Amino acid sequence: MKEVTVQELKSFLDTHADFQLIDVREPFEYEVSNLNGLNIPLAGILIEADKIAKDIPVIIQCRSGKRSAQAVLLLEQQGFDNLSNLKGGILAWKEEIDPEIEVY
């Protein structure tokens, strides 16, 4: 499974790279804090797979990297080959990029 670090994600965001960010946490978690990704909870990832790009890089994130890793595995079984897991999730983002972001 491909992974990207929070530093790599920040670089993508800073340079306005052409990619898609998917947040697989639950809506109530997304409301607490998010990185402006598209919110598709893990339980619905296969049902809403048509919302996920196949022609540009896609980074999947969650709180710690565990649920997003599950999402990557599920989607790869459906033929996606452009996915990366955000290593450490939003917790790593808080620790390494933005200590002010709220996490739970």
Results as ranks from 00 to 15, higher is better:
residue 2 K to Y: 04
residue 3 E to R: 07
residue 4 V to P: 06
residue 4 V to Y: 04
residue 5 T to C: 00
residue 5 T to S: 12
residue 6 V to R: 02
residue 7 Q to N: 12
residue 7 Q to Y: 11
residue 8 E to C: 03
residue 8 E to A: 06
residue 9 L to D: 06
residue 9 L to W: 07
residue 10 K to M: 13
residue 11 S to L: 08
residue 12 F to P: 05
residue 14 D to E: 14
residue 15 T to N: 11
residue 15 T to Y: 04
residue 16 H to W: 05
residue 17 A to Y: 08
residue 19 F to K: 00
residue 20 Q to F: 06
residue 23 D to Y: 02
residue 25 R to V: 01
residue 25 R to T: 10
residue 27 P to L: 14
residue 28 F to T: 14
residue 30 Y to D: 01
residue 31 E to V: 14
residue 33 S to F: 06
residue 34 N to L: 00
residue 34 N to D: 08
residue 34 N to Q: 04
residue 34 N to C: 12
residue 35 L to K: 01
residue 35 L to D: 00
residue 37 G to Q: 04
residue 40 I to R: 09
residue 40 I to F: 09
residue 41 P to R: 02
residue 41 P to L: 03
residue 42 L to S: 07
residue 43 A to R: 11
residue 43 A to N: 11
residue 44 G to F: 14
residue 45 I to E: 00
residue 45 I to R: 06
residue 45 I to F: 09
residue 45 I to M: 06
residue 45 I to N: 10
residue 47 I to S: 11
residue 48 E to G: 07
residue 49 A to R: 04
residue 50 D to N: 11
residue 51 K to C: 08
residue 52 I to P: 02
residue 53 A to L: 03
residue 53 A to S: 06
residue 54 K to C: 05
residue 54 K to I: 05
residue 55 D to E: 03
residue 55 D to Y: 02
residue 57 P to W: 00
residue 58 V to K: 00
residue 61 Q to L: 10
residue 62 C to S: 02
residue 64 S to V: 11
residue 65 G to R: 00
residue 65 G to Y: 02
residue 65 G to A: 02
residue 65 G to S: 00
residue 68 S to L: 04
residue 70 Q to D: 10
residue 73 L to A: 15
residue 73 L to K: 15
residue 74 L to N: 13
residue 75 L to T: 11
residue 75 L to C: 12
residue 77 Q to D: 15
residue 78 Q to N: 10
residue 80 F to C: 12
residue 80 F to T: 09
residue 80 F to M: 10
residue 83 L to N: 02
residue 84 S to M: 07
residue 84 S to A: 12
residue 84 S to V: 04
residue 85 N to F: 04
residue 85 N to H: 03
residue 87 K to V: 06
residue 88 G to K: 04
residue 90 I to M: 05
residue 90 I to W: 00
residue 91 L to E: 13
residue 92 A to S: 15
residue 97 I to C: 14
residue 98 D to W: 09
residue 98 D to V: 03
residue 99 P to E: 14
residue 99 P to G: 01
residue 100 E to S: 13
residue 101 I to G: 02
residue 101 I to C: 00
residue 104 Y to Q: 09
residue 104 Y to G: 11
